[in-house]
Structure formats: C-alpha cells, structure tokens
Design a binder for these strands. Structure first.
Lengths: 261, 261
DNA sequence: TGAATATACTTGTTATAACATGTTGTTACA
DNA sequence: TGTAACAACATGTTATAACAAGTATATTCA
C-alpha cells in the first residue's frame, strides 16, 4: 500500500517535475498562487508551503507583488553533489570508467579501523582503482570497507559501476551523510605511475567517509586527483539583502569539481 | 524612522539571540509552539514561520510529536565563511598575524588582468604576505588588485589587518560574491622558504577572486597553505526525508578550513 | 512485573479569511 | 505629452480553527 504524500508535497513535486522537464524556461513566471490554488484545488497555505520548499531548494525565487520565477541557474542551492565519480564525469561530458587494480582482504589498519568505527583487529576489504575520464587517468583511489559491506563488492563489476551505486541502489543501503577532507599530497611512486605523473608531483587528496542510517560508517576512501585535470570550484554570492553585512559569510551557490581536458 | 520587522522575524531574532547567547544548551528542547504563542502573544502560524526559518538556517531541528531542539553544531547551514584569514584563525584559537613581504606596483600580468577584467596594459598592485597563526607560518599568499583599489592599501598596516577588512569595513566596499578554486601545487623555492618546507613539497592552493557590487572584481589572490596545518573539511548530511534517494546530492552542513597545530 | 491501552501533548497539514505591502498598467489631469 | 492618482493584482503577514500523525507517559489488566 503506497503512502499518500501530503498535498503540499504533491504540488511541489508536480511543479518540480514541470521545471526539470523544461516546461518552464529559466526566468519564466509561474502561475500566480491564486491560479495554482484553483488548479490543484487546494488552499493558499498549501500552495505557499510548496513554493516555500521549492524556493529553499533553489528551484524558484519569488518577488513580492510580482510572482514566482524559475531559477536560471541549475545550481542545486545548498546541495552538494560530489558523491559519485561517474556522475561528475557525465556532467563534465566525459565517459567514466575505472581500472580495477586490486580487490582484496587486508589486515587491519589502525587509522582506518578507527575512522570506520570497527574493532581494531577486524580485517578490511580494500579496493584500489584508477578512475578514468574518456580513457584518461583522472584519479587514483583506495577504498576500505568493513567486511560486511565489502563482501558485497566481490561479485560486482567495479570497472563500470561505482561503489556508491552498488551500495545504494543495488543493496538499498542509503548514504545519508559523509565527511570530506581536502588537502594536498605528493604523489608516491605507486600513485604517480597510475596517474602518469612524476614521483613527488602534487596531487589533490580527498579523504571521505560515507555513512548510512544511524551514522554507521560504510566506507572510507582516499582519492588522489591529478590537479591538472581536476580542481574544486566554489561560487559564493549574496543575491540581495540576506541581512546586514557579511558577518555570517556568504551563501554557497555552487561547489563542484571542475574538469579540464 | 526605524522599520518595524514582522512578528515572525521578531520571534526568530529573539530565539536566535537566546540560542547564540547560550541560554539554550545544544540539543536542548525549545518551548512548545503553544507556549511560544502564549509568550509572544502571536498565532501558531507566526511561531511556525519563525521556527521554519530557524530550521532552514540550521539553528534548530524539529521532530514531529516531540519538539524543536537547538542544533549541536555551530555550523552556519549553507553559509560559507572562508573570507577572512583572521576570522579563521580566531575560530581555530590561534592568533592571526601577517608578515608583509612586499607591497609594490607591478607590470600587467596577462592572466591576472583577464581575471580582474581590466585593460591588458594596466599595472597592478601586488601584495605578498606570509600568514601566521600564533607565530607559525600557515600560508603564503599573493594578492593582485587594480590600482584603484590597490592604492587604498599603501597607508594601511597589513601585518595586523586583512585586505578584506580594509576594503569592506574601512572603505565600505561590500564584498558580495567570490569564486574559489582549490587545487594542489608543488611549492617553489620562494614559497617553500617562507613556509619552512622543502622545495617541491605539496601545498594546498586556493585561488580566489572577490567581487563587489555589479560584479566588479576587487582583487585576485593565490594562497598556498601548508597542508600539514590546513585542510578543508566538509560535512554533508541529510537530516531526514528531503525526498527520495540522493539523486540531488546531500545538503552541505559545514565547510570550513581545519587547522592542525 | 510486563505488556497493552488509553490519554495527553507535540508537531504536521490544511482551510478560510482579512489585511499589508509591493508592482504594474491604466486613467485622468495639468 | 508627461506625470500623478488609482485600480487591479501579486505576494507577504497574521489569526483562527480543526484534524492528522507521531511521541511519551500514565494507567490498566493479565
């Protein structure tokens, strides 16, 4: 039995669908609240609730006395998408693939076991991969998983699928949270070989730990990007008032990896 | 004549003040909506509007049937504060200072002039500084400004004041937007000397361009962080529903430089 | 004592209604 | 023709009201 969503949620989804399907041009005005009330046969409270949510998510913006308009940007407001390598590549117009270097069970690593919140004597599943964009090596990464999650990977094709995808879509383990650390490192012999760099060349290192329900750690990954191909770009901008000066910083409008070919 | 703020705004500000002043512990439950209605002598619509805004800003979270609670994080929701080195240091509990290496007028630099959107033959003001946290070198940065803005710096004490501060607070030129690029680089002889590193060591490079009203570029800066002292940390987390799976990525809860001593 | 149930309380949803405030286009007047 | 006043319309604010749904606590019964 399917749970019926609330009315404001239905209205939101309907409008969201129309926007993402391109039925409205960026900047185009949505029907007035009154019209939406009549169309959906709901009260103005409900319509405004839906519009409020769409505004919070950055799909529309509103002007008093004028109307609600579809945002011209395709930025996902404060949503950050750096979860999936394949997705990143797709957006950059590159074909994503991976070269599996190794998939093996390894002895516990003190630092990693602590991060993953598992017993210090528990073995780990380790995945080493080179990540390719249209055939060119973009990044090298090593992923560690607790055995419970790690064993899910042994029957999967890791050259075309991302770990994120296997975990979340095939096994329906939702990734609800993650922490990321961005730093710089010198490529060692192993990494530089795979990224076709010289030993000692600077690489962009991203450490991340993804968590599922109950803050349970699913995997920890160290990824090394070739900085000539990848950098992270951020756009901050105050649209208008917000309030006062920049005592609170600027709202993040975009944060994404940028790829150079 | 002072403009009277709306009631829900007053309620929000009142609660916000109490939260930031520490009258509520993180995780502590706020009074129920009913109580807030009675206390502020407003309707439930108004109270809920205020709570909704506080929730959007990340100061509280709510649980149906239970109540509203003060967030334990001091994250500024989707506001990102990486504008000011001094501020960053203060939050890390370190004393901020700068060592001015050079402040000079230099010949146009093709790449920089293009970024700053000024004529290719226009000279630039260049500021080289070592940024210190409690006396230890944390970063080296070079800033280029168009002569108009640059000349404002010649009478200022750049060892204690940040450029951002001088521009925005003293000359009241608001910084409304900025773009940032995070990448990795090998420290050259010059940089490594100032950061007490070895030549070739990897450093975290942040390029940023700050803009004022009308998207006018105010300055362009290249900053090199010692990665053993500084990395950028990001926290993404879905509080609850949002909607469906993570097709849209995760909301950013925190993004800030992290300092190790 | 332990589990099921009832109850009170809390937030979530939705409708109706009135007025405030901002915008735009039209109309009337100089 | 140009401007000022006005009307129509849009979103913003706020109150009242009722019910839905989730949670916690007290109560009852086995």
């Amino acid at each position: 039995m399917e749970q019926q969503a609330s009315k404001h949620e239905q209205v939101k989804q309907h409008l969201h669908k129309e926007i993402t399907e391109g039925n409205y041009e960026p900047g185009e005005k949505l029907p007035s609240e009154k019209r939406l009330c009549d169309y959906f046969k709901v009260s103005r409270v409900t319509v405004r609730h839906a519009l409020q949510n769409l505004e919070n998510d950055g799909f529309i913006y509103r002007k008093q006395g004028v109307g609600a308009f579809v945002s011209n940007q395709n930025y996902k407001s404060n949503l950050v998408r750096l979860t999936d390598f394949a997705e990143d590549m797709r957006q950059a117009g590159l074909q994503s693939s991976s070269r599996l270097i190794e998939l093996k069970k390894v002895d516990p690593i003190k630092e990693v076991n602590e991060i993953l919140d598992i017993r210090p004597d528990m073995k780990l599943i380790q995945v080493d991969r080179v990540r390719l964009g249209s055939g060119k090596p973009i990044a090298f990464d090593t992923t560690w998983l607790p055995p419970g999650y790690g064993q899910l990977l042994f029957d999967e094709d890791l050259t075309t699928q991302t770990i994120y995808n296997i975990i979340e879509e095939k096994y329906e383990i939702p990734i609800n949270a993650g922490s990321y650390r961005i730093t710089a490192a010198n490529a060692n012999k192993f990494i530089s070989k795979h990224l076709k760099l010289s030993e000692g060349d600077a690489v962009l290192e991203i450490d991340r730990c993804s968590r599922t329900t109950g803050n349970k750690k699913v995997y920890f990954q160290k990824r090394y990007y070739n900085p000539t191909h990848v950098s992270y770009v951020m756009e901050l901008s105050r649209t208008d008032e917000s309030q006062g000066p920049s005592k609170q910083g600027l709202p993040l409008k975009e944060f994404s990896p940028r790829f150079a070919k």
